[in-house]
Design a protein around this nucleic acid. Sequence first.
DNA 1: TTCAACCCTTAATCTACCTTAAGACTATTT
DNA 2: AAATAGTCTTAAGGTAGATTAAGGGTTGAA
Lengths: 192, 192
Amino acid sequence: MSAIKNLVSHFDRYLSLDDNESQALTTRLTERKIKRKQYILQEGDICKYFTYVVEGCFKMYGVDKSGTEHNLLFAVEDDWITDLDSLHKERPSKLFIEAIEPSTILQLSKGDLWYLYTNHPKFNRNFRVIIEDKYIELQNRLLQTFSTTAYERYESFLEQYPNLSNRLPNTQIASYLGITPEFLSKIRSESR
Amino acid sequence: MSAIKNLVSHFDRYLSLDDNESQALTTRLTERKIKRKQYILQEGDICKYFTYVVEGCFKMYGVDKSGTEHNLLFAVEDDWITDLDSLHKERPSKLFIEAIEPSTILQLSKGDLWYLYTNHPKFNRNFRVIIEDKYIELQNRLLQTFSTTAYERYESFLEQYPNLSNRLPNTQIASYLGITPEFLSKIRSESR
DNA sequence: TTCAACCCTTAATCTACCTTAAGACTATTT
DNA sequence: AAATAGTCTTAAGGTAGATTAAGGGTTGAA
C-alpha cells in the first residue's frame, strides 16, 4: 500500500526505521478516506488518534463564546495532526479537526502509540523531534501574533504557505491570521 | 548537592530514573547562579543549553521593530526553559532569556543532551513528555489570545499563576498578555 | 539622603480592526 | 435549471486597546 510507504519514508527525515520497526508501525496503522467537511475530532470528544495526512488538507480550530471559529493550524500532505492535550490527558477536547479537502489519512491509536514507544524506543526519539518542530512553529506564530500587524502576518503567511493560499478560501486564512474576512479583503485590496 | 536532587526527583513525575541514569545525568549538569537582569540567552546568540530552574524566575521574550518586548513565557522553580528553535537548528535566536529574580539553574549542553538521548533512551521519553506538556500550554495560550478579550486573559492569568502575579511587576504581566501596562492598569481599576 | 531609574495610574486622543449590511459572483445540491 | 449556500468586496459606523503625556510613588545605588 503506497500510502503506508509514504509514512515509512517520512521517518527517513529523522532516524530511519529498520524492517522490524516499519513492520511494527505498519501493522498498527489504520487507513481512512475522509470527505470534505467531515470531522475527525469534535469539541467534547476525547481525541483517540495521532493522525498522519497522506493526502488532502485539515484545519484544527476552536470556537469562542460568540460562535466564531479560530484556526490554530492547518495540516497538509506529509504532516501530523492531533489534539495532544486531549489525547494525553484523556479529557474532552476544546477543538475541532475538520477536512477542508477530500483526504486520506493514517491513524495510530493511543494504545498503539504507547506500544511503539515502549517496545521500539526509536519512536520516542522520532516523535520527540516531530513534536519539537511543531512546538517551534507554534512559538514563532505566537511571537508574530503579538509583535506584528495583520498586514505583516498576511505577507508572511503567503511566504510560508505558498500553496495553501490557493487551496484555501479567504475566510479560512482570515481565521488563521486572527482577523475577519472583511478586514483581510481590505488588506488585499490595499496591497495592490 | 540538593539542587541536583530536585531535578532527579523532578523526573519521578514521568519515568523515574534508576541509579545509572541519575548518575549519567548529574555528572553532566552545570550549576550556575544568575543575578537579576542577567541574560542566559540574547538575540543573535545560538542557544547552547537546556536549562532547569532550581530557584528564581526567568522570562523569555522577543523584541519587535519598535523596541517593545513581548513575553512568550515565564519559567519558575522546577520548570524548564530554552529556545528549542535555536538549540536544535543551531541558528541565531530571535529571543532573550533574562532572570527576573536572583536564580539558581542547572544546565545541559546540547552535546550532553544528545549523549543522554542516545545512551539512555528513557530521556527521550521523558523529554518527549516534557515538551508535549509545553506544547499543550502554548496551544492553549494561542487559542486564548485569538478568542478572548484582554480582561478575560488577565483573569485567567491570575488563576493559572497565582504566585506570579505577586512576584512580577505589572509591566511584565502586560507584556505577557499582549497589551500595554496602561491598559492593564485600566483593566485592574475597572475590575474592582 | 539625594538622584536616577523604574513603576503605577489617570486621562485625552488616536487607530487597527470589528460589526453590520448589502450586492455580485460562484459552487454545490436538487 | 433553479435554488441554496458559500464566498468576496465595499463602505459606514463602532470599539478595544495603543499612544502620548503628566504626576506621584518606590527602590536602590552613590
